[in-house]
Amino acid sequence: MSSGAPNLSRRPDGAALVIAVILAGIAAIIIWQTSQMRLPPIQARVGPTVFPYAIAGGMLLLSVGTAVSAMRGGFPARDNDNYVPIAWIIGGLVAQILLLSTAGFSIATGILFAFTAKAFGRGPLWQTIPIGVVFAFIVWFAFAKGLQLSLPAGFLERLIP
């Protein structure tokens, strides 16, 4: 995945410059948070702040390196990705996270399953959601009932004593 040929055009790579900025930002956050730490009066030759500062310093250097690489077009060529499927999958995960505690494992996970299938071009949802719920329910039954794993239960799961 990291073996693409370098961009031969020498135009600066905007997205890669953003990465450099983000890296510098993370380094700044680490430095700021670490400077706010209350140091306990414990005997410590190398205290809890040394590594965070060192790592932040490394990130700043890498941020510069990334910027240089972006200016020179050193990043591999990127595919022309399609963001619609990504939105479906992330939507499925978000839906699962929000629904788990109220609707239970089977329904929430069934929706994740159906949304993922949709991202890969399989639909319609009114068919795949029931398939997903049944699949997730079987999985829930095997793990929660068979193996005593604690998984969130909703009204569907409570139908089984």
Binding site: G92, L112, K118, A119
Partner: peptide, 8 residues
Amino acid sequence: PWLYGGIL
């Protein structure tokens, strides 16, 4: 669709 749905 089924494979990656299952993985997730």
